[in-house]
C-alpha cells in the first residue's frame, strides 16, 4: 500500500526563487488497484513519484510505502518498489540478462533464486531470443521489456510508473499497458502517472488530478463523472484545473 501524507517538495531556482513542485499532497493507493495521477506537463507528477520511490526526499510531509516511511527507511522502500519511467534507461554495454541480474543482486537475491527468477521472467516476457544481446543493440520494444524485467526481478509489491508510454509507438505502449494491468491482477499496488486521458480511462481504478503541485481532486472515474456532470474525462480535467474556463462547443 502507498499512503502519501502532506507530501511537499520545494526547489530553489536562481531566477524564479522558491518553486513548490509538490504542495501538501495526500492520497492512498490500495493493493490490487491502479491509481492514476493525471496532470499536465510540469504539474508535479514526476516529483511526486520520485518522492514515493525515494529518489527525491520530501521537503515536508512523508509517505508510507509497504509500511516503510520514505524519509526514515528509504532503502527498505526501494526494496519493495519497482520504478519504471521513460527516463529509467538501460546500461548500454550490459546484455539484457546481465542488466536484470545486476538489479536482482542489488535487491539482495541470492544466485540460485536469481537464476530461477530471471529464467521465469524471460520466459514470461518472451525475451529469450535477445537475453545475450547488449542493451544498446536492442529495439525500443526489447528495451521496454528489459526495463519491465528489471522492475520485476525482485517481485516488488508496489509498482510506480512515471509516464511509461511517453514517446513509444503504439505496439510498445500496448506491451506496457498490458503489463500494468497484469501487475494489478497479481495484487500489486500500482501508481501510474500520465497526461494521456485515454490511458487513464482504460487503466485506472482511482484517479487523482494534480495541477501546480496540488492534488485538486481524486476518486473513481464514475465518481468524478457524477461530481462534475461530465462524461468526457478531458472535460472533467479542464473543469478541475481551470474552473472558470467554459466548455468549448464544437
Amino acid at each position: 500500500m502507498i499512503e502519501a501524507r502532506g507530501l511537499s517538495k520545494r526547489f530553489q531556482d536562481k531566477k524564479r526563487g522558491e518553486i513548490r513542485a509538490v504542495d501538501n499532497v495526500t492520497f492512498r493507493c490500495q493493493p490490487g488497484q491502479i491509481y492514476g495521477l493525471l496532470g499536465a506537463n510540469g504539474a508535479g507528477k514526476t516529483t511526486t513519484l520520485r518522492m514515493l520511490a525515494t529518489i527525491l526526499e520530501p521537503t515536508d510531509g512523508t509517505a508510507v510505502v509497504c509500511g516503510y516511511d520514505v524519509v526514515e527507511n528509504p532503502e527498505k522502500v526501494r526494496a519493495n518498489v519497482g520504478f519504471l519511467s521513460t527516463a529509467t534507461a538501460l546500461y548500454p554495454r550490459l546484455t539484457a540478462q546481465e542488466l536484470v541480474e545486476y538489479f536482482g543482486r542489488l535487491n539482495g537475491l541470492d544466485e540460485a533464486v536469481l537464476k530461477k527468477r530471471v529464467d521465469e521472467i524471460f520466459q514470461r516476457l518472451d525475451m529469450n531470443d535477445f537475453r545475450d544481446r547488449r542493451c544498446d543493440k536492442l529495439s525500443t520494444g526489447m528495451k521496454q521489456k528489459t526495463s519491465i524485467a528489471r522492475t520485476l526481478v525482485h517481485d516488488p509489491p508496489v509498482m510506480i510508473f512515471d509516464e511509461p508510454t511517453l514517446g513509444l509507438d503504439i505496439m510498445t505502449a500496448r506491451t506496457i499497458t498490458a503489463f500494468i494491468r497484469e501487475c494489478r491482477d497479481r495484487g500489486k499496488t500500482v501508481i501510474f502517472s500520465t497526461h494521456i486521458m485515454s490511458e487513464v480511462e482504460k487503466l485506472c481504478d482511482v484517479i487523482g488530478v494534480i495541477h501546480d503541485g496540488k492534488l485538486l481532486t481524486k476518486g473513481t472515474l464514475a465518481r468524478l463523472r457524477d461530481q462534475y456532470g461530465e462524461h468526457d474525462l478531458e472535460e472533467i480535467f479542464i473543469r478541475v484545473v481551470s474552473p472558470l474556463q467554459t466548455k468549448v462547443e464544437v
Partner: peptide
Amino acid sequence: ERGTMETILSSPIS
C-alpha cells in the same frame, strides 16, 4: 546523459 542515473537510484543500494 544516458538516463541510467535514475534507474540505479531507484534500486535499494545506498
